[in-house]
């Protein structure tokens, strides 16, 4: 990818992060760390990789972006708004009464949300079902299933992986947010998952791993995975930093499920704006 495009994606990710901070501040409750950590992956998906049309959210040929760990929906809503599925103003209604932006995504409320998710380990099954349907109808679109690593604690995820392998779903691309943090603490303490790549390999996946906060890697590894078609499901394990971009949030489990207060939000915005200036100064 040329540097200009890469720079544009970095700027988009920065915009999404700023939107996330503003949303969480306005909401006064919600998950901050996960959305910040996945901003780069979402920016690449919505603004580089996936075929989709905000004007026709139900267009049959679209790639499906299925968020399985619904609690990081702030980044989904920010991406959908940036893409034009909803007015940016509406982001301020997140988690409020009568809003289409529910605390966890609701399919019937907001076009662009492929499945309701919140209770973990279900969206992946829905995504596999969508991939089965696409295979049956010989449709070429890709089903992206975004998952948290904590979510992989749920046994039902592994039921879905077994079946993704059985039905040779090479139209499915799973993306795991490997930040090693969940509500009760560090993932490797709460319930160890390593060796995670080996587990996926043993379940019959083509496995890719990369730094999910380095846009160049995010772009190239997604491209590589998209080109890989071996009649097997694919997974990219994105190593990310929960809270990425805001130094006092980074890698601290307490920021999994809380919003910033006004002072913290101001500091976060300051840091993200400084980062934006740095990105803009990059040679393209």
């Amino acid at each position: 990818m040329d540097k200009k495009k890469l720079k544009a994606l970095k700027l988009t990710a920065n915009t999404l992060r700023q939107d996330v901070i503003q949303m969480l501040l306005a909401a006064g409750a919600g998950h901050t760390g996960g959305p910040l950590g996945m901003a780069d992956v979402f920016a690449n998906l919505y603004f580089n990789v996936a075929k989709h049309d905000p004007k026709k959210p139900h267009w049959e040929g679209r790639d499906r972006i299925v968020l399985s760990n619904g609690h990081i929906c702030a980044i989904l809503y920010a991406s959908l708004a940036e893409a034009g599925y909803l007015p940016k103003e509406e982001l301020k209604t997140f988690r409020k009464l009568d809003s289409r932006l529910q605390g966890h995504p609701a399919r019937m409320d907001l076009p662009g949300v492929e499945t309701s998710a919140g209770s973990l380990g279900q969206g992946i099954g829905v995504a596999v079902g969508m991939a089965m349907a696409a295979k049956l109808d010989s449709k070429p679109h890709t089903i992206f299933a975004l998952m948290g690593d904590g979510e992989l604690n749920e046994g039902s995820c592994w039921e879905s992986f077994l079946n993704a392998h059985k039905f040779k779903l090479d139209n499915l691309l799973v993306m795991v947010d490997r930040n090693d943090i969940q509500i009760d603490g560090y993932g490797h303490v709460v319930l160890p998952l390593d060796p995670l790549a080996d587990k996926f390999k043993a379940f019959g996946f083509d496995v890719f791993e990369a730094d999910g906060n380095d846009m160049a890697q995010v772009v190239s590894m997604t491209e590589k995975a998209m080109k890989t078609k071996n009649q097997k499901p694919r997974v990219i394990i994105w190593k990310t930093i929960m809270g990425k971009g805001v130094d006092f949030m980074q890698n601290l489990p307490k920021w999994h499920g809380i919003p910033p207060n006004a002072e913290q939000a101001a500091e976060a915005m300051k840091q993200l704006q400084a980062e934006r200036v740095r990105i803009e100064a990059e040679k393209a």
Binding site: Q122, I124, V128, G129, M130, A131, M132, A133, S156, L162
Partner: peptide, 19 residues
Amino acid sequence: VGITEQFMIAAAAGLAMEG
């Protein structure tokens, strides 16, 4: 789908949402 009822229900939802 084998003995994976949780998956079966979720996958059925996915299939349904695809028509």
